[in-house]
Design a protein around this nucleic acid. Structure first.
Ligand SMILES: Nc1ccn([C@H]2C[C@H](O)[C@@H](COP(=O)(O)OP(=O)(O)OP(=O)(O)O)O2)c(=O)n1
Ligand SMILES: [Mg+2]
Ligand SMILES: [Mg+2]
Length: 802
DNA sequence: ATCCTCCCCTAC
DNA sequence: TAAGGTAGGGGAGGAT
């Protein structure tokens, strides 16, 4: 209502019930009432927000009804010959990318000779993946999903047919070139194995997909689960490992194995959760920096090299796989980040700064001034970004429920990263466990991540935005604010339409936009506009628009504030307006109180800023963290320190305050519901401030170790560790010239590298207004200062920084 | 008053 | 199996 929306009919305001969200704290959902977080409240007296354990997830859970055993089955084409058994009896192929013979021809061969041909990859239905050449990016993805399945050249099919017998696919398998790349792995750490490499080839265009019909029906998810479960198991044992070299990738793996988790745990978890549906934490993001870094450290050449070709080893190794935890992987930290979506989105801004540094004038101090008058702000956000990018060349999937996730195990606890709009109709949301998503929609198509492609599309997206507006504030890889006040010549809605058209034309992914007089309203308008629409909220319509809008829809209001207000019978902005400012101050503090008071009236004085000062740099891991002894913990801390050190260097900054955060299993909490998750934890943090800014590895390691020791926690109970550096200063000012910037930036992508670029740092520090570097403290070599200034006095007899 | 540490909350 | 990160804003309460 109140707002005009055009584009593709956007469901007006209505916030839409939001089912799944994750609980930030309270963690493992387990039981709403009992155990779990009981301790929280009493413990910390100073906290404005009381954590009410499980707000109202139950209600949404109630909505969870669907279920049904749906047989995936769906998109496979089977031949009549199958029963009779032809050359390819028992073989089910998935063709990836451009091949010779073509995918269509391969399909015919399969169907005419007893085999199966599937249009969409699934570990459960595919026995062989056929492709001629894989871009690196694809490789990593395939690896994630091929789990043990052989990746074979099409010649295998042709030759088998010629000989009229099924040949061993071994000689036809594609594998990573060993020698050279294998060596690099050591460096590895940084290398993710992916790189920008030209566009994906992709595509099988067949539309067949007979598919999925199923929709509601009986339930019995058990049978469904069992079935898939068993198939999965069979295909999986080998997972990581076998495909590790089969499908390429380097990684050296170490031995050992371990822990194994049992399916039981999973079942249990299943039943446990039931009530709240959501789980623990919140979500978001990923990161490539690792990869970029490595690209800087290693020659890129090594990367592609190789993949190609034929097999080599394969026979050997195989032990690898094993669960990835700190206990089994000495390079856990480095490897972990390569696959983390939250790391990708969390570090994306640094990459953006690097790439667009030339367009980000240093602090546009001017321009912001006056015109408090009428402004025109556009907020623009890609629709279901991760999904859209992955399926941009698969139009057949656009109207089917699709989600991005590391796993499609219907019993798994992998998290959904993004779900497209058809999938959202089933209540599927980012952050939800894949098993819950599958329970709601058994025919949900799960596709793997393609971080390189996200980076490419994000770059195109921002490239376009910068063409239309000089004041662009990046919020994330798929979202930005534009202050069009001074760069507008046409009607704002027309310009917006043009921008969106260009984005779609260039990326084949749709974006939605909101246009309004301030950032708050523009952002709200975008929500109304989605998907693939735009919405303008004129000042006259603001009141009506907000009146019935749920307070939860306001940015900055999460479940905690929302619950607290709800307990006061305030659920929509109209009701919030009735609360006097003083009361809000009392309940939420000055700033937050003001924010609430302003936002529910559509007031927002914030300004679009192209650059924001970097205040801290850190890294943390709360998944797969398990230690048997102190040595494990110290090794992990050393690696984490290394990671942080590289990031500081990449940003060109050093810092004086080092903060270590540790999560430990909460007393009484059992194994986490999420596989290798941190579960219900207590978190403690402690910091130390030193006299001179540092980015020195040894110093960081030493301080991290001492801070850790000061907690005196039982290392066996540690479930997460984070290290963050703040009170930053420019590094090059701190010490002499940047030592050969070989590390120049762990965040520079290979393609950027080619463009050569200047050596701008990605992190921006204030430094006066312009050039005001005079105020920075002189830098003292990290090992020379006396620590009369260290904060932690009880930490040990001598200062770690000395 | 202002700064600092140790949280908590939020968004992507 | 699975990859629950990152960073900024802000509040409480203590130190200065
Ligand atoms: N809990 C989350 C939230 C987001 N993301 C990632 C995947 C998203 O595609 C991307 C952008 O986040 P958005 O909030 O913009 O969500 P989408 O773009 O997926 O959907 P929408 O159409 O609502 O913007 O960040 C994630 O991995 N996990
Ligand atoms: Mg989006
Ligand atoms: Mg977004």
């Amino acid at each position: 209502m109140s707002a005009s929306s055009s584009g593709r009919g956007a469901p007006p305001p209505a916030p839409a019930a939001s089912p799944g969200q994750k609980r930030p704290r309270g963690d493992d959902p387990a039981s709403p009432s009992n155990h779990s977080d009981s301790s929280a409240p009493a413990k910390n007296p100073r906290r404005a927000f009381s954590s009410s354990p499980f707000a109202d997830f139950g209600s949404y859970m109630a909505a969870k009804n669907s279920k049904l055993a749906a047989q995936f089955e769906a998109d496979a084409s089977t031949s009549a010959a199958e029963a009779t058994g032809g050359v390819f009896a028992g073989v089910s192929i998935f063709v990836d990318g451009f091949t010779v013979p073509s995918s269509q021809e391969l399909k015919e061969i399969m169907l005419n000779n007893g085999g199966r041909f599937v249009n969409y990859f699934s570990r459960n239905t595919v026995t062989h993946i056929i492709c001629t050449h894989l871009p690196n990016s694809k490789m990593s993805n395939l690896r994630a999903f091929s789990k043990g399945l052989p990746v074979v050249k099409p010649a295998w099919v042709v030759d088998s047919l010629a000989e009229n017998r099924l040949l061993s696919c071994v000689p036809y398998q594609i594998s990573q070139h060993s020698s050279s790349s294998r060596k690099q792995t050591k460096l590895s750490a940084f290398f993710s194995g992916r790189q920008y490499q030209g566009g994906l080839i992709d595509q099988n265009n067949d539309h067949e997909l007979q598919s999925s019909s199923a929709q509601e029906g009986s339930q019995d998810q058990n049978s469904g689960c069992e079935k898939e479960g068993s198939l999965f198991k069979e295909a999986s044992n080998d997972s990581p490992s076998s495909d590790d070299h089969k499908a390429l990738m380097f990684e050296e793996q170490d031995s050992e194995d371990f822990i194994d988790e049992d399916g039981n745990a999973c079942e249990t978890a299943c039943s446990e959760r039931r009530d709240n549906g959501m789980d623990c934490k919140l979500d978001v993001a990923q990161s490539p920096d690792v990869r970029s870094r490595c690209s800087n450290l290693c020659s890129t050449s090594s990367m592609d090299s190789h993949l190609s070709l034929d097999s080599l080893d394969r026979t050997s190794t195989k032990s690898s796989s094993r669960t990835h935890s700190t206990l089994t992987d000495p390079n856990f930290v480095e490897n972990y980040f390569k696959y983390s979506r939250l790391h990708f989105i969390g570090t994306w801004r640094n990459r953006y700064r690097k790439r667009f540094s030339n367009l980000l004038g240093a602090k546009s101090s001017k321009g912001n001034s006056d015109h408090s008058g009428n402004k025109t702000i556009i907020h623009i956000d890609m629709d279901c970004f991760f999904v859209s990018v992955v399926i941009k060349n698969k139009p057949e999937l656009h109207d089917k429920p699709v989600a991005v996730c590391h796993s499609d195990n219907p019993k798994g606890t992998a998290e959904i990263s993004s779900a497209n709009y058809p999938a959202r109709n089933y209540g599927i949301k980012a952050g939800m466990f894949v098993r819950d998503a599958k329970a709601r929609c058994p025919h949900l198509m799960v596709v793997p991540y393609d971080f390189d492609a996200y980076g490419e599309v994000a770059d195109q997206f921002y490239g376009i935005l910068h063409k239309y507006c000089s004041k662009v504030q990046a919020l994330s890889c798929d979202e930005a604010f534009l202050d069009m006040t001074e760069c507008l010549h046409d009607n704002p809605e027309e310009v917006t339409q043009k921008i969106r058209n260009e984005i779609f034309g260039t990326t084949k992914c749709s974006a939605s936009a909101g246009i309004a007089g301030n950032m708050l309203l523009a952002r709200l308008a975008t929500r109304s506009a989605k998907p693939n629409g735009q919405c303008f909220i004129s000042s006259e319509k603001v009141d009506d628009y907000l009146n019935t809008l749920s307070i939860k829809a306001l940015p900055g209001i999460g479940h905690t504030v929302s619950d607290k207000l709800k307990s006061k019978e305030v659920e929509c902005c109209g009701q919030l307006r009735n609360i006097p400012k003083e009361a809000l101050h009392k309940d939420f503090g000055k700033k937050i109180g003001d924010m609430l008071w302003n936002y529910c009236r559509g007031i927002d004085h914030s300004v679009v800023e192209a650059v924001q000062e970097t205040k801290s740099v850190g890294a943390e891991v709360n998944w797969g963290v398990r230690f048997n002894n102190n040595k494990d913990a110290e090794n992990f801390l050393a690696n984490l320190s290394k990671e942080v050190c590289l990031r500081l260097e990449g940003c060109g900054v050093q810092g004086r305050t080092i903060t270590l955060k540790v999560k430990t299993r909460r007393k009484g909490a059992g194994e986490p519901i999420k596989f290798m998750g941190c579960g219900d934890c207590e978190t403690v943090s402690r910091s130390m401030t030193i006299a001179g800014a540092t980015d020195n590895l040894v110093t960081l390691q030493r301080i991290a170790k001492q801070l850790f020791a000061s907690f005196r926690v039982d290392v066996k109970e540690v479930r997460g560790v984070g290290l963050k550096i703040s009170r930053l200063e420019h590094a090059d000012l701190a010490r002499g010239a940047p030592q050969g910037n070989m590390l120049e930036s762990w965040l520079l992508s290979p393609s950027e590298k080619l463009k050569k670029h200047s050596s701008e740092k990605a992190c921006l520090l204030k430094s006066g207004d312009d050039a005001g570097i005079g105020h920075l403290l002189p830098v003292i070599p990290s090992c020379n200062f006396r620590c009369n200034k260290c904060t932690l006095s009880d930490i040990g007899s001598h200062y770690p920084c000395c």
